[in-house]
Amino acid sequence: MDQDYFSVDSILAANQKVQCVFKQDLPNLGHLGGGSDRDIAALSKIQLPLWLALIIIYSDWADFNIPTAFGPRVRNALKAEARSVRLASLVGAGGLWYGFGKAIVDILADEQANEISEVLTKTFRARLVEIIDQAQHFAALGPVGAAGSSGDTAQLFREGLDATERELFSLAQESAKRTKRWYEESDRPKR
């Protein structure tokens, strides 16, 4: 999420692919798309990872389409009920939906960028309370009860968490667990 050089999360986020439409013929650059062609023809569409697409877009060789993970369909779904969207499935395994979104926001022009940034922020807020609630619920259950209870919606929600949200979930769970343990236990002999 950070733009830190050493941040593994931001490297992973930049590994998501975006669809680029090339504006001009590029001789001898066919390997970019991973295909066997020697050249890239104008108007060809190629999926490129974001870190590679970035330099190509800045060089004005190509335009890119907003990935479907942030497209109108997803946005409408998020607007309707942010908690029922499975963010994880939008960006693949261990996906960083927020990180990817942030990376996209950084290369877009003002208006579009603000829009996506707003979608990201709103989504995050809408889901936050539910994440923490569930984390605390599971902390309270302890190791045994966790497997048995699975409200269907709750479970679907948990499976749809993106990696950043998972991290939050475990932070909240750990902290709630520690506090609960302290409240309940005592190393002093009770009288």
Binding site: Y98, G101, K102, S117, L120, T121, I132, L171, E174, S175
Partner: peptide, 21 residues
């Protein structure tokens, strides 16, 4: 404070990242 600190701090950090302006 101690109980909520880890995830409050982390979520505020995230919000800072997501907010463009």
């Amino acid at each position: 404070i101690n109980e909520i600190r880890p995830f409050f701090v982390q979520s505020m950090h995230l919000l800072t990242q997501l907010q463009r302006q």
